[in-house]
Design a protein around this nucleic acid. Structure first.
Lengths: 231, 231
DNA sequence: GCGCTTAAAATAACACTGTTATATATTTCT
DNA sequence: AGAAATATATAACAGTGTTATTTTAAGCGC
């Protein structure tokens, strides 16, 4: 058993290295050709190997795009955590929203992958029943990046509620859902070419975010927000 | 020439009948199997014909889904126009937003097709250079249903501005973009299974719409809206 | 109505895709 | 080193959209 775990460990490491190598090429192909242009065969030939390595590493195309999906949320979560966190949670919230839009515009292919509901999302929603610790690997970790990105906003919302900027009677998840839908709706339309010019998109985003905030804020939050806007 | 046009006319009519026949089967298949399950070959065999009829009628799969895309917006525009129009434009707006969400939940496959940006949308945005009137047929009409659905909301927005519910200084297109992004963002998340229960989705939709309205309304509009909500 | 012309539909083939079965190395453990 | 297990390469299968070719049908002048 001791040797067994040791063996597995070394194997896992090399396998992990190969996984990341494949994933890098796949993400590059994804960014260049989009979700539809991603092909298992083209990926294999670009790596100079056979298609089987993708199957042994990811189980198939579904597993591959699932890993890319996770990586997309990983990048989003990273971008959110790189947002400078000011003292005031409202300003933090505004920057998080801008970061969301910035992510969508920077990685349109990843964003398209994230919002394409072709993957089996429901299983992510429900928590996993605690599995054997020996088998805790990437499959179990599916969706944790997604939840990390989500909770990043929910934490900010809770902070805003603690500061009495949002109604404390409201469920934080409801407010988060509203804000998420807001920025997602705008980013989705902007990427689809809804606005004629980037200036139109920028103006619409500002109008949208300020409107949803003033509509959601308490009196105290509104006064702070309008005071902040006039600087 | 007279006989020629006569000939073409009769041919057009039969071709149109065949087009609608194909489109009906295609929309049924779309609703049942989703955008990914739509196959030219399966469609042809279900119609008892060869794949060539789809190619002569629509030029290929791209033309077919483009026609389905148009039909989707046609249904949405129809659903919007079936919305009872109250005297007050604000209430009209609220019903239009609810109708949008209702459409997305009723025809998820059509909605998925509408928001899938895999089609060449940009060409719809730009107007067509006036073509030879003899060649004015469906290809030229591409996107008019889309614009109809869009203008239906923009008209409502303008009416709200005329009633001083929205700031008249704002561009109607900006307000429309904001509202569109709002309902689209929510419907997209709800269809993706973002909310745990339908009650959560309903509550989030109400919170979202009321927040975006109160944030966008003028003082006059806000007083009317809150008074209306308390009934 | 017949023959000619033209267009449409059926057939088959092509170039792809993801996936899987089989065979060949390659690695791993006894 | 030999044996067992695993991963890779090769090739084949079942699909897809599309196109070339052949067959069929329709329309029109005579």
């Amino acid at each position: 058993m001791n040797t067994d775990t040791k063996l597995r460990k070394t194997r896992r490491i090399s396998a992990q290295a190969q996984r990341t190598e494949i994933l890098d090429a796949a993400s590059e192909m994804l960014a260049k050709l989009g979700p539809d242009g991603l092909s298992v065969r083209k990926l294999a030939t670009s790596l100079g190997t056979s298609t089987m390595v993708i199957y042994t590493a990811f189980g198939g195309k579904e597993g591959l795009i699932s890993a890319l999906y996770d990586e997309a949320y990983e990048r989003m979560a990273e971008m959110q955590q790189n947002v400078p966190r000011p003292n005031n949670p409202l300003e933090w919230l505004a920057r998080l929203g801008a970061a969301y839009r910035h992510f969508a515009l920077t990685y349109p292919a990843y964003y398209a992958l994230m919002i394409s509901s072709t993957l089996p999302l429901p299983e992510i929603q429900t928590g996993h029943p605690a599995a054997d610790p020996a088998t805790i690997n990437e499959p179990v970790a599916r969706g944790i990046a997604r939840q990390r990105a989500y909770h990043s906003i929910e934490d900010c919302v809770s902070a805003c509620q603690a500061a009495a900027y949002f109604d404390p009677a409201l469920k934080p998840s409801d407010i988060t859902a509203v804000l998420w839908a807001t920025v997602h709706g705008h980013a989705s339309l902007e990427l689809a070419g809804f606005h004629a010019t980037p200036e139109d998109a920028e103006r619409a985003f500002l109008l949208l975010t300020s409107a949803i905030l003033t509509g959601l804020l308490t009196r105290k939050g509104r006064t702070y927000w309008t005071k902040q806007q006039n600087n």
